[in-house]
Amino acid sequence: MEKEKNSNQKSRRNFVEQGLKFGLLTAASGALLAKVFGRSENPESAETVELMSTDGTLMQVPASAVSHTHESKSAYNPREGFPNRKFVMVVDLAKCRNAKKCQSSCNKNHYITGENAWIKIYKMQDSEKSAPYWQPTLCQHCDEPACVKVCPVDATFKRRDGIVLIDNNRCIGCRFCMAACPYSVRVFNWSDPWQGEAVEQAEYSPDYAGVPSQKGTVDKCDFCPHMIDKGELPHCVSACPNDVFSFGDMYEDTVTNGSGQSFKLSKLLKDRAGYRLMESLGTEPSVYYLPPSDRIVDFEEGLKNYTEFQSVDKPQEP
């Protein structure tokens, strides 16, 4: 316990140091996302790297400075999160045709064995006369999270990078967070998850939800910090065949979709009239939606994939 505390403190101090470096770097060089997500080639021989700043201009940055970002990973603590990041997601409803690849990828990679998926594609219709549309819905990673507010034991928590996670080793299973969440994104392990020996024996960390899941505790979408840590996009983002999802960092004002295209977040939200779900509740979600206007496909096309009563395929033995 004592040792853990010490190392926690140490890593916190590291964080501050790394954070400062990181902050300076961000201020100087702008978007790191291009490095992390943009899959830009890192020219080994060149002395400088081309990066895009927050206002969209390209600039040259010494390659040695960029390499610092990789060091900061070693200081990463799942409860604290990545320093100087604020993760956001944009969901383009005009592109969704209920292909459900996001869902199956999420189910598979988080080893979901229950009957309620963490990402669900809702069949929505706001009023009788308006058009129906498909709405992929996952944890909104609110900045004023109702779930975190009510948790009696600090099992669900908000990190400084905006991600809301659950510590399944601490959760007491009171389900108050589920009652508090207006987006119905939280899922309870009513029985033993039976995820198979490999997953059940895996070392648990809150930043990879579902590995393993625990009976009697709450699970939900974790925004895939385990993928971010590797410099990759969350499973749903890269699985989507239609580039519905874009993921990125609000401080860098950039989001990247599954095909690797990057957009300026503020411009995207402005041009496409982005909005958030149930804005009036004051939960300040980190997930933005682009309205389903000028859709690439008909709503009806998604109906063939629609199953009202199922979001997780029955587990099959490999």
Binding site: A117, Y122, K123, P182, M278, E308, F309, S311
Partner: peptide, 13 residues
């Protein structure tokens, strides 16, 4: 009666 419709869960739920 949650805010979002109940979908994607078994009928008995």
């Amino acid at each position: 009666h949650p805010f979002l419709p109940i979908q994607g869960v078994p009928e008995s739920w």
